[in-house]
């Protein structure tokens, strides 16, 4: 016992003397750690930002949420890899450009076989693959694009049709659209046309494409899908929605000026260069009238000589 007591008192007394020093050391050590770990964190954050840029040819399994959400949900357990009966999935290795450990497949080497019971989604313990996806035909793994019209055999006038034939949603996700073959002047071209609302991105078309490098490819939808814009209205769709009744034709809308080559006259078209401005146009209105409304909608009056022929809906087409 005495030895133990001696020991403890010896240990305690210098500690008591140097308490402010110890506190200073503690604060310094903490600051050092905080800085070091903070730097590591910054580096890791930058790397994680890089890792979000998935290479376009790496396709996530069905039901995968958007890449950012997916990387927050997927714990890299590989259960989807194990339960895929066709072994198409693999977990990204550290050297691959796909985020380490996450599952993906490559359409050209092994496309999704579109199992009806979707075992990969059922196996996922985190919901990184959305369990509410029960119809494989509703999955959106990517979007097929006929990427190269120069090499697609159908674009060259042949009847390859392989992508169309292998498509699990034939005549829905891929259709063949007829166009005249202007090269021969007497044949039709059967253009494989992908319809984004039905295409699942399974990749069977890319796998089956007979050209040396696939001419049709599955890519992330956000990389290839355009967006028309909220405000666009397609006249013919609006017309059919309105029961065949055009929303514009009987409104007497103004026919906007067409610029024509000098000296050319087109019947019914107004050329601001040579024709006098019609009544109601800015610059020809009575000074006290502000033409806030177009002619025909309560404005100063329809322009002279605007015939029915060049109707706006026709022009929109």
């Amino acid at each position: 016992m005495p030895t133990a007591n001696n020991h403890s008192s010896r240990a305690r007394s210098p500690a008591a003397n140097t308490q402010p020093l110890a506190r200073r050391q503690f604060v310094l050590d903490s600051a050092r750690l905080f800085c070091g770990v903070g730097l590591l964190g910054l580096g890791l954050a930058a790397y994680s930002k890089q890792a979000r840029a998935r290479p376009p040819l790496a396709i996530r399994p069905p039901g995968a949420s958007a890449e950012d959400d997916f990387l927050g949900a997927c714990i890299r357990c590989g259960m989807c890899v194990r339960d895929c009966p066709y072994n198409i999935l693999e977990l990204a290795r550290p050297e691959s450009p796909v985020a380490t450990g996450t599952p993906y497949f490559t359409a050209r080497t092994g496309p999704c076989e579109m199992c009806e019971d979707i075992p990969c989604v059922k196996a996922c313990p985190t919901g990184a693959l959305d369990h509410s996806l029960t119809d494989i035909n509703a999955s959106k793994m990517g979007l097929a694009v006929l990427a190269d019209q120069e090499t697609c055999l159908n674009f060259l006038g042949l009847r390859c049709d392989v992508c169309y034939r292998v498509c699990p949603l034939i005549d829905q996700a891929i259709t063949l659209e007829l166009r005249p073959n202007t090269r021969t002047g007497r044949h039709a071209m059967f253009i494989p046309t992908v319809h984004s609302e039905r295409c699942t991105g399974c990749g069977k078309c890319e796998k089956a494409c007979v050209t040396e490098e696939a001419s049709i490819r599955v890519l992330p939808a956000k990389l290839v899908k355009g967006s028309l814009g909220e405000h666009y209205r397609l006249g013919w769709e609006e017309k059919s929605k309105a029961g065949g009744h055009s929303l514009v034709e009987d409104k007497g809308l103004i026919d906007l000026p067409d610029r024509l080559p000098e000296g050319m006259k087109l019947e019914g078209h107004f050329d601001p260069g040579s024709d006098p401005l019609p009544a109601g146009m800015p610059g020809n209105a009575p000074a006290n009238v502000v033409p806030s409304l177009p002619p025909g909608l309560g404005g100063p009056g329809a322009p002279a000589g605007a015939p029915r022929g060049g109707s706006p809906s026709e022009a929109a087409r």
């Binding site: 590591l40 954050a45 790397y47 979000r52 927050g72 985020a99």
Partner: peptide
């Protein structure tokens, strides 16, 4: 423990499981 706190904070800040990358 600082590293542990950093990995948890990073998950919240980036919305991804950043630590699992490395």
């Amino acid at each position: 423990y600082w590293l542990l706190a950093m990995t948890l904070a990073l998950a919240g800040l980036t919305g991804t499981i950043a630590w699992e990358l490395v």
